[in-house]
Simulated assay, not measured.
Amino acid sequence: MRRGENLRSEDYMLIDPFINGVAEFHDRHRDMRLDVDNMSYEELLALEERMGNVSTGLSEETIMKSMQQRKYFSIAEESPSSLEPCCICREEYVTGDDIGTLDCGHDFHTNCIKQWLTQKNLCPICKMTGLGT
Rank of each mutant, 00 (worst) to 15 (best):
M64P: 02
C104D: 02
C126N: 06
F108R: 00
Q69L: 09
E77Y: 15
I88Q: 01
K127E: 10
T129D: 05
D107R: 11
M51D: 05
R30L: 10
M67L: 06
A23I: 05
F25N: 13
P80C: 04
E43D: 08
G21Q: 03
L58K: 06
G57W: 01
N20G: 07
K127A: 12
T62I: 15
K65R: 06
N121F: 01
L44I: 07
L7G: 01
A76N: 14
S81G: 05
L122I: 15
T95D: 05
D35I: 08
D103T: 03
S79A: 14
V54R: 07
C89E: 02
L14A: 08
V94G: 03
I125L: 00
Q69A: 10
L102H: 04
M39F: 02
G100H: 02
G105D: 05
K120E: 09
I88P: 00
Y41G: 06
D107T: 13
W116C: 02
L58R: 05
E92S: 10
H26E: 11
G52S: 11
S74G: 09
V94E: 02
A46H: 06
I19K: 11
C123P: 00
A76R: 15
G21F: 12
Q69E: 14
C126T: 13
D97I: 11
I99D: 00
